[in-house]
Amino acid sequence: MAGAGGGVREMGAAKGKGADKRLGRPVRVLLFKPGLDGHWRGILAVARALVEAGMEVIFLGHRPLDAAVETAVQEDVDVIGISVLSGSHLEWTGMLEEALEREGVREDFLLLVGGVFPFEDHEELRRLGADGVFGPGTDTRDIVSFIRGKLR
């Protein structure tokens, strides 16, 4: 039944080549879309760019928050990224932050939020818990250097 997951349940994983200098292994990133928003190109473009930069990406497609958090813990990722183009970016970011806090794992991950939303919401997204916020027109190389800079 639909309630369990969503359109894409199969996990797509792709490994990049380069080990991160500090970590001694590639950076591991979990990407997924909370909610129903079906715009899939942005998050896959980011996924491909991160892989090209040598990172390891686990792409979950649509995934309920709790299930995604569980996977993030199991897979021991460094970064969690969500993409929202439905206008519900504030709500989903707040709910993800809550889910991470509830599990007591918030400090284990860098949290990135991307999608289409007003520039004036960037501040609010950071206040809600996002470490990095990437709106329309973002160059994917900026996301790569942001992650590298923060994990250092």
């Binding site: 639909a2 309630g3 909610g35 129903l36 928003d37 079906g38 309920p64 439905s86 519900s88």
Partner: peptide, 18 residues
């Protein structure tokens, strides 16, 4: 999104955000 995909707003928790 809910209308487009034919889902009720109480289909799963959090979905009313959309």
């Amino acid at each position: 999104n809910l209308t487009t995909l034919a889902l009720d707003p109480d289909h799963f928790p959090g979905i009313e955000a959309e």
